[in-house]
Design a protein around this nucleic acid. Structure first.
Length: 439
DNA sequence: CAACGAAGCGCCCTCTGCTGGTAGATT
DNA sequence: AAATCTACCAGCAGAGGGCGCTTCGTTG
């Protein structure tokens, strides 16, 4: 990237504890046009503009960048896009492509056309591009909050967005289609692609070319939605969309079913606890939790489940060991897509779950919840032998093995023959009680 | 319309490793 | 007695496994 030339990259700071101070510096330094380099790093360039993503000088094949952006001057119907993404520059059919790093399939995110210039009528944005290895994902997110928002909204006030200066990053955002999900720049769902390159052959592999077909948008309330098939022209796809959320479907029946999720109407009532449900299937599953009925039994073990999907997943975990979700950056594979998504955060450094009391951020909800115990002082786990309390179950387990385990030196009371732990003064755990620990 | 399977979110758990405080041993 | 070393242990976070439950696309 132009901002750094051939300078050696500093050691990236990825450890939370060490980065704490770093974030403070970012907050202090965000006033200028560029973000001051941290820990001796070269400065990050704040780039502004609109249109196609362009690198000047041209991006280098294989060069990796962290890019974060936030849009301004949206056209009607366009949704704000913001976030941080880790991108990789590759060349395909002579055209530089920016692809989402970590996606199982390389999906074109934005087409890079060197020297393409500013595209008119494109939403404009502000972006920061930093060569990979200088800052972590999390650092970028912090900078986004502190730098981009101020700059973007200040620029929004000025309502001047089409000027372009050398070295800027120009970012073209996708139209109002499925690819504009808010998490597209951070999640594995990224399907953003403009596919508006001048050379159509360069994007021939774009999966979303189908979106170029004419599309009719219907909503649930529109009278014509009921009879739309009568008026559909050949080649047109009718998309039914929910008025209350972003849900869309090609089937009217799916939309009807979906709209019930917004309704409080729950006509199916459990006769045992009077809890109400929207559908008969949900009620039946619920009643099964009362009765213990688990119709789907595993043929290889004693486990049984309420739904067939749970059984299928269980069999993948325990019996077939099928792990269809494979990480493109390492050998990790998982049974569930959500596990792969969580795993990928260990590559990207993304930490979406922030503690509101300190600078800690977690990669999943459970770790944040576990972390919050450190603020409350709560010690939920108590040793059943000596009543010592612990913050985590694993810590308690180790305590029991170390303090009350079989190998701990013991002293037998001459009066009652009870074995006493000389350190804790409590009876030593027996083989039976230890098995209870391990259960 | 119901059933099924896939997908997604959430929750909880275990295992693991690092860190810092502390107490006892050693110099 | 003071300084240093060392082992121990609680605290805490990273990573991943497993399951409960709901929603949605598809099909009969």
């Amino acid at each position: 990237m132009a901002a750094f030339g051939g300078s050696a990259l500093p050691e990236p700071f990825t450890k939370i504890k060490g980065a704490e101070r770093t974030w403070d510096r970012v907050r202090e330094d965000n006033g200028g046009p560029d973000v001051e380099g941290l820990n001796g790093a070269p400065p990050a360039k704040v780039l502004e503009g609109g249109g196609n993503l362009e690198f000047s000088p041209p991006a280098v094949q294989g060069e990796k960048h962290l890019i974060m952006l936030q849009t301004v001057h949206l056209k009607e119907g366009e949704e704000e896009l913001q976030g941080v993404s880790q991108l990789n520059i590759q060349q395909q059919n002579g055209v530089h492509m920016v692809v989402q790093r970590g996606a199982s399939v390389l999906q074109p995110l934005v087409v890079v056309q060197e020297g393409a210039g500013v595209q008119q009528n494109m939403p404009t944005g502000v972006a920061i591009s930093i060569q990979d290895g200088v800052y972590t994902f999390h650092d970028m997110e912090v900078m986004q909050i502190n730098v981009l928002q101020e700059k973007v909204w200040a620029k929004d006030e000025e309502n001047k967005s089409t000027d372009k200066s050398p070295g800027m990053l120009l970012i073209k955002l996708p139209p109002n289609e499925e690819g504009r999900e808010k998490d597209s720049f951070t999640g594995e769902k990224a399907k953003i692609s403009s596919c508006k390159a001048k050379d159509d052959t360069s994007v021939s592999h774009c999966e979303h070319k189908k979106h170029e077909e004419p599309v009719l948008i219907k909503n649930t309330d529109a009278p014509e939605a009921q009879t739309n098939t009568q008026h559909r022209r050949k080649g047109e796809k009718v998309i039914f969309h929910c008025d209350l959320c972003t849900f869309t479907s090609l089937r009217m029946s799916s939309l009807h079913r979906h709209t019930k999720t917004h309704s409080d109407e729950k006509p199916h009532v459990c006769h045992i606890c009077l809890k109400a449900f929207r559908t008969v299937t949900l009620l039946r599953n619920h009643v099964n939790t009362h009765t213990g009925t688990r119709p789907y039994k595993c043929c290889d073990c004693e486990m049984a489940f309420v739904t067939s999907g749970e059984l299928a997943r269980h069999r993948r975990y325990k019996h077939t060991l099928e792990k269809p979700f494979k990480c493109s950056m390492c050998k990790y594979s998982s049974v569930e897509a959500s596990k792969l998504k969580r795993h990928i955060r260990s590559h990207t450094g993304e930490r979406p779950y922030n503690c509101y009391l300190c600078s800690y951020a977690s990669k999943d909800t459970y770790k944040l919840k576990r972390h919050m115990v450190t603020h409350s002082g709560e010690k939920p786990y108590q040793c059943y032998i000596c009543q010592a309390r612990f913050t985590q179950s694993g810590t308690m387990k180790i305590h029991i093995l170390q303090k009350h385990g079989e190998n701990v030196p013991r002293y037998q009371c001459p009066q009652c023959n009870t074995f006493i732990n000389p350190f804790s003064g409590v009876p030593v755990v027996t083989k039976k009680s230890r098995s209870q620990i391990l259960c």
